[in-house]
């Protein structure tokens, strides 16, 4: 491969990695709140597809992409409240409640899409968020196309990494979230409303997941498709555990998962013949390894997946 081609390949690889890691990063950041408060939400996948549809429908019928973003966030919030109700109010098993949410979300989105748009030969499309160029910064060779040629949602997501870290580490609310996840009983005795904090964290997780879904439909693909989330919600769950509930590490984990994906696509497209399945499976293997390393040190929030009830031990 000539030098120029090699540089082009690397640029498209790195820029692609950043772009494709965003719909993993966003739900993962949200799940950091949720899991820190003690709730494992396996319904992210379902919330994301609901977000993808709401975002697309909102943008399609109003012509405003930002209204699409708004509807996706609201839809994510509302839909995640089902998870909150089942796992906090009813104290149901979270794995089962999350499974229900994923099935429900995936099917509901597909159903509503068919009802709203009917059966078409060509899918309805919109113009998604354009790339920014930061007053010409995107023209800088190599650096420009990699870092300064994305749409606004990408930078919003990167800002949310900092924001999430700030909320969890530097605010009273963050302290309460961690208290509720680690020592719900003690938190309760200090007057922190365990149920309320958990509801808020599930809702925040839903908003981030909704936004992540919207990124797919109105920030990446220009359209809605039934299978467009393609397991990213579950990947987000493993990113959260891989990054050990830390927003900064979640960014790197999302880049790793995204990078593996882009690398296999790019390698395939230039005809490099290595089994791409191993590349795709690698992040999952790493997650298990991290999980084993983490679990020994018991870094999980102590009340992880355990419903809180004043009456029981």
């Amino acid at each position: 491969m000539s030098n120029n081609l090699y540089i082009d390949f690397m640029i498209s690889l790195l820029a692609g990695t950043i772009r494709i890691s965003i719909p993993i990063l966003l739900p993962a950041l949200g799940q950091i709140y949720t899991q820190r408060s003690g709730i494992l939400n396996l319904g992210v996948e379902g919330i994301m597809i609901i977000g993808a549809l709401s975002g697309f429908v909102g943008a399609f019928f109003t012509g405003s992409l930002w209204f699409g973003v708004f509807s996706a966030v609201v839809a994510g919030l509302l839909f995640s409240l089902i998870m909150g109700f089942l796992s906090i109010t009813i104290k149901a098993n979270q794995v089962i409640a999350g499974t229900a949410l994923t099935i429900l979300g995936t099917s509901l989105a597909s159903f509503l899409y068919r009802v709203i748009f009917g059966i078409r030969k060509l899918p309805p499309i919109i113009d998604s968020f354009p790339s920014l160029n930061f007053l010409g910064l995107s023209k800088i060779p190599v650096i420009g196309p990699i870092f300064f040629n994305h749409n606004i949602l990408v930078y919003l997501a990167l800002f949310l990494v900092f924001f999430t870290w700030f909320v969890l580490e530097k605010t009273t609310f963050g302290l309460k979230v961690k208290a509720v996840g680690e020592f719900p009983r003690a938190a309760d005795s200090k007057g922190i409303r365990v149920g309320l904090i958990r509801y808020i964290c599930v809702a925040i997780g839903g908003m981030y997941a909704g936004l992540g879904g919207a990124f797919m439909s109105i920030g990446y693909m220009d359209t809605y498709m039934d299978h467009m989330i393609a397991g990213r919600g579950f990947i987000a769950v493993s990113v959260v555990i891989f990054s050990r509930w830390d927003p900064k590490r979640a960014l790197f984990a999302a880049l790793l998962f995204g990078g593996a994906n882009v690398l296999q696509m790019r390698l395939q497209s230039i005809g490099v013949n290595i089994p791409n399945q191993f590349l795709l499976a690698l992040p999952y293997v790493l997650t298990i390894l991290v999980l084993v390393g983490v679990s020994k040190k018991v870094a999980f929030p102590s009340a992880f997946t355990i419903p809180y009830s004043r009456n029981s031990k």
Binding site: I288, S295, T305
Partner: peptide
Amino acid sequence: LLRAKMNANEVITTLMFNYIIMYFLSW
């Protein structure tokens, strides 16, 4: 074993294995 000896949450490990095995089959 991972659960019993290392306390690795089985929800996550079984979920990860679903993907790993799916790609293994694909390979």
